[in-house]
Amino acid sequence: MTANILFAATANRWAEYETPLSEALREAGVAFDLRTDFPPDEVDYIVYAPNSEVQDFKPYTRLKAVLNLWAGVEDVVFNPTLSVPLARMVDHGLTQGMVEWVTGHVLRHHLGMDAHILGQDGQWRTEVPPLAQDRRVTILGLGELGRACADSLARLGFPVSGWSRSAKSLPDVTTYHGDDGLAEALSRADILVLLLPDTPDTTDLVNADRLAQMPEGAVLINPGRGTLIDDTALIEALDSGRLGHATLDVFRTEPLLPVHPFWAHPKVTVTPHIASATRADSASRVIAENVRRGEAGEPLLHLVNRDLGY
């Protein structure tokens, strides 16, 4: 039986995915018809980007699952017309990209690289950074990306703490959970990395009170979601010296508006949402495996908990 697969994303994504996704489906042994324009009542699976034109799922009466192209599902998970399983993207390329970006920026701040890269002014700066074992890193969010980053940093010798809503256990990582554990995790954050999803519970999680719980002069790194931080509180903490620097890859409005104060702030580094991205080759294999599973009656991978929002 042929699986009818609708690719619902922007035109540039179709050009990027058509060939590798078709090849991955064939390698997975799936009989398929992959298009961008099926009649809704003939669609079995939707390969989905939340910014596509498909926003009402009711006409897709034989739909078996929606397979998200992105790791984040906040723009689709609460859609009231979506009643079938939703799978988020968990992809080796996406995970490895995040590990490399986070590790690079943690090392940048740990080693004080900016003073040498940006400070070419004739001054012979002899300050020696501490070893990794003396710089504490805390990661908020211990999902797939958070766990991978925590493992990478722990293997470099950093004392790594991690926080999540529910209890989790990781080798070589001190873990905390719940409201009581958050304050303790923040108190250990010489460098804080945010890798939480965007949910109603995480909006403005890092506010003035939480920033005050961090060590003075700490660094904040956010490749997670722009909504995690109260922007006004962050700028105030930087201006007061409570925080030493913020490196931000995600923002409430993207692209970040040219007039936003982050651009000109001397203690803020802006990167344009490049910490990690879905790679078509590896992501196509994840999608193909889920279609194969769906057709074989096996459990789908990376299903979203609709109540939690991730």
Results as ranks from 00 to 15, higher is better:
residue 3 A to S: 15
residue 4 N to G: 03
residue 7 F to W: 14
residue 7 F to C: 11
residue 16 E to P: 08
residue 19 T to N: 12
residue 24 A to M: 13
residue 28 A to Y: 07
residue 32 F to K: 01
residue 33 D to K: 09
residue 40 P to C: 13
residue 44 D to V: 02
residue 46 I to V: 14
residue 46 I to A: 11
residue 50 P to T: 06
residue 52 S to G: 06
residue 58 K to T: 12
residue 62 R to D: 02
residue 63 L to K: 01
residue 66 V to T: 05
residue 74 E to D: 13
residue 75 D to E: 12
residue 76 V to R: 08
residue 77 V to D: 09
residue 77 V to H: 06
residue 83 S to N: 08
residue 84 V to T: 07
residue 87 A to N: 05
residue 88 R to D: 00
residue 89 M to G: 03
residue 89 M to E: 00
residue 93 G to S: 15
residue 94 L to F: 13
residue 101 W to R: 11
residue 107 L to H: 04
residue 112 G to R: 14
residue 112 G to D: 07
residue 118 L to M: 14
residue 119 G to Y: 10
residue 119 G to V: 03
residue 127 E to T: 09
residue 128 V to Y: 05
residue 130 P to M: 13
residue 131 L to N: 02
residue 131 L to H: 13
residue 134 D to F: 06
residue 136 R to Y: 00
residue 152 S to W: 06
residue 152 S to N: 14
residue 153 L to V: 04
residue 154 A to E: 03
residue 158 F to N: 04
residue 159 P to V: 09
residue 159 P to R: 13
residue 162 G to A: 11
residue 162 G to E: 07
residue 164 S to W: 10
residue 164 S to T: 13
residue 167 A to G: 01
residue 178 G to T: 08
residue 179 D to N: 06
residue 180 D to G: 05
residue 183 A to G: 09
residue 184 E to C: 04
residue 184 E to Q: 15
residue 187 S to K: 11
residue 187 S to M: 10
residue 192 L to C: 09
residue 198 D to Q: 15
residue 199 T to H: 15
residue 202 T to S: 10
residue 206 V to Q: 04
residue 207 N to P: 07
residue 207 N to Y: 02
residue 207 N to L: 02
residue 222 N to P: 00
residue 223 P to Y: 09
residue 227 T to C: 05
residue 229 I to E: 04
residue 229 I to N: 08
residue 232 T to R: 15
residue 235 I to E: 09
residue 238 L to K: 11
residue 241 G to L: 15
residue 256 L to P: 01
residue 262 F to M: 06
residue 267 K to A: 11
residue 267 K to Y: 07
residue 267 K to V: 00
residue 271 T to P: 05
residue 272 P to E: 06
residue 273 H to S: 07
residue 277 A to T: 04
residue 280 A to S: 15
residue 283 A to M: 03
residue 284 S to T: 09
residue 285 R to M: 11
residue 294 G to Q: 02
residue 296 A to L: 12
residue 298 E to G: 11
residue 299 P to G: 08
residue 300 L to N: 10
residue 303 L to M: 10
residue 304 V to D: 03
residue 305 N to T: 07
